[in-house]
Simulated assay, not measured.
Amino acid sequence: MDAADADDRLDRAFLALADPVRRRMVARLSRGPATVNELAEPFDITVQAVSKHIRVLESAGLVTRSRDAQRRPVHLDAAALEKLTEWIDRYRLIHERQYRKLDALLARSDTKESSS
C-alpha cells in the first residue's frame, strides 16, 4: 500500500468515525460480533439506515461481515483501529516530547530566577 492509499484509508476511517451512531456501533462491536438487527436496537433509526452506516464502516475498513448460517454478523477489525491508534500516537508522542522540553526549559528558568 503506497502513502496515498494509506492516507485515503485514514481519511475514510476518520470520516466514518465522525458520526456518533457509527462510533457507538464500533463501541458495541468491540464487545463482539453483532447482527444488523442487534446493532439497530439502541437507535431510533431504521434497519436500512443502520445498514448504510455499516456499509460506511465497511468501506473504511473498520468492520467486516461474515456468513453464519442465516446470520450475517458484523465484526470489528481491531487491526484497522490499531492503525488509527498508531497514527494518533505518532503525533501525540511528538507533542509530548515538545511539552517535556518546554517543561524543562521553564524549570531551568524558574531555577535561575529563584537563585538571582
Rank of each mutant, 00 (worst) to 15 (best):
A4M: 15
D5Y: 05
D5M: 05
D8I: 02
R9M: 10
L10E: 00
D11W: 03
D11M: 11
R12T: 01
R12W: 00
R12K: 10
A13H: 02
A13C: 14
L15W: 05
A16T: 12
L17N: 01
A18I: 11
P20T: 13
P20W: 06
V21M: 08
R22Q: 13
R22I: 10
R24G: 08
V26M: 11
V26R: 01
V26K: 07
A27D: 14
L29R: 00
L29I: 04
L29N: 00
S30P: 13
S30A: 10
S30N: 15
S30Y: 12
G32W: 07
P33T: 10
A34G: 06
T35L: 12
T35F: 04
N37G: 12
E38M: 04
E38K: 05
E38I: 03
P42V: 15
D44C: 09
I45V: 13
T46M: 10
T46D: 07
V47F: 15
Q48P: 03
A49K: 10
V50C: 08
K52Y: 13
K52N: 15
I54R: 01
V56W: 03
L57S: 04
L57M: 10
L57T: 06
L57D: 06
E58A: 03
E58V: 14
E58G: 06
S59C: 07
L62N: 00
T64M: 09
R65Y: 03
S66L: 08
S66H: 05
R67P: 00
R67V: 09
R67L: 04
D68T: 13
A69G: 10
Q70W: 14
Q70V: 08
Q70F: 15
R72G: 03
R72K: 04
R72A: 06
P73Q: 07
V74D: 00
V74K: 01
H75V: 02
L76T: 01
L76D: 01
L76P: 00
D77K: 02
A78P: 07
A78G: 13
A79V: 13
A79S: 09
A80K: 01
L81T: 05
L81S: 06
L81N: 07
E82L: 04
E82Y: 12
K83P: 00
K83S: 01
K83N: 02
L84V: 15
T85A: 10
E86I: 02
E86N: 06
W87S: 07
I88V: 05
R90D: 02
R90H: 14
R90N: 05
R90F: 01
L93Y: 06
L93M: 12
I94K: 12
E96P: 07
E96N: 09
R100F: 14
R100C: 09
R100P: 00
K101F: 11
K101E: 08
L102Y: 14
L102W: 13
L102V: 08
L102N: 13
L105S: 06
L105E: 15
L106V: 15
L106Q: 14
L106S: 15
R108H: 14
S109A: 05
S109R: 03
S109H: 04
S109G: 09
S109W: 03
D110A: 05
D110Y: 14
T111C: 03
T111H: 09
K112W: 03
E113M: 05
S114R: 11
S114C: 08
S114M: 12
S114Q: 04
S116I: 14
